[in-house]
Write a protein that binds this DNA or RNA. Structure first.
Lengths: 197, 197
DNA sequence: GTCTATATCAAGATAGAC
DNA sequence: GTCTATCTTGATATAGAC
């Protein structure tokens, strides 16, 4: 299998002025990637097959391999970019906020509910850390690190709560009629003091 | 660890005096189930195929279908029994405890770390609630309901935190060197007051 | 960059004999 | 309760022509 160094296909963000558009992908590869993301978001992880991807693009399945070495490279690129997008949203949420932890939590939940299958992709398997640029993950965690004053214990505590809430909600684990927002509120209120907020 | 009641095909357990040992499975089906659980725990969800299950039992793959109607029924039985076992452990953990919420958290984490693939099975997909007796889930939640004084908001808050911690740990998401126990401690300490503890 | 044809593999599940 | 033989489906991926 072809490996483009430490990065999935050399995907790396190069510019400080355009952090959300990192790419060394060819234009055609970007189209393939966009179609893959649509397919994933519409049909879930099982819908993301080479055949279906080809169908969506109007090409045959094998043509995919001219653009990515294999399926994993495609998924890794999706993961990297999703982390980056999420990081942008979370940073925007806390900027100039009067209640940054609440707004952070709301933004996190909103992203997950809008992109449930993409969120799943981020967490369903161990990260392929040999092939995914860690900058995506790092960027995703930036907002919570800032709020926690760089205290890693508290940052991970709030991350775990948020992730647990999302996972239970996305997987339909809360009983019908649960006021999920109320659970969020109480959890955030309880965890806030540990962040010094 | 006890042998929990099976509920493979919509049959409910009837006895209030022996809730943890009801079974309508034939002895042979129980052997199949035990082998399936071993296989799952040793090799993960992808290892649980009919062929491999047959190999482990020394029978052919199709022979399985004399004992369960299909793979999903087998998985549902595994899920039901895992919930039941977990519920037993959690109830035992809080009984006569001086610090029940801490002991509950420790027991939950211990179960997940000892049976990571089984834990995954419990949460990786939407529950097939049409085919799984809800008694298992209910039993699993009994301890936390007691601790929270039947306040569902607080119970779900603590559940989400615990699940999030487990999921991040099992999936290797915490950076190398993270003191996971310290994160647990701080989270539990922060959430405790909301439970009135 | 895309095609057709194909290799390879493995999955869940059924039929019917014993 | 188990067997052999088989069906059906669908996955990732490669070869080689255009």
């Amino acid at each position: 299998m072809h490996r483009a160094g430490a990065l999935p296909f050399g995907v790396r963000h190069m510019s400080a002025t355009e952090p959300t558009s990192p790419s060394t992908l060819s234009p055609r590869a970007r189209e393939v990637l966009a179609a893959a993301r649509e397919l994933l978001e519409e049909e879930g992880p099982d819908g993301l097959s080479m055949r279906r991807l080809g169908d969506r693009l109007g090409i045959s399945a094998p043509a995919f391999y001219r653009h990515f070495p294999d399926k994993r490279a495609l998924e890794n690129t999706l993961i990297y970019e999703a982390f980056w997008d999420l990081g942008d949203l979370l940073l925007a949420a806390i900027e100039d906020s009067d209640d940054p932890i609440t707004d952070l939590a709301a933004a996190y939940r909103a992203y997950a509910l809008e992109h449930p299958h993409l969120y799943d992709l981020l967490y369903q398997r161990p990260l392929d850390r040999d092939s995914i640029d860690p900058a995506g993950e790092t960027h995703a965690g930036e907002a919570i690190r800032r709020l926690s004053g760089n205290d890693p214990i508290s940052a991970r505590m709030i991350w775990a709560y948020a992730h647990g809430m999302i996972d239970l909600e996305l997987k339909g684990r809360f009983p019908h009629g649960t006021d999920v927002t109320a659970v969020w509120r109480r959890g955030i209120a309880s965890l806030k003091p540990a962040l010094g907020l």
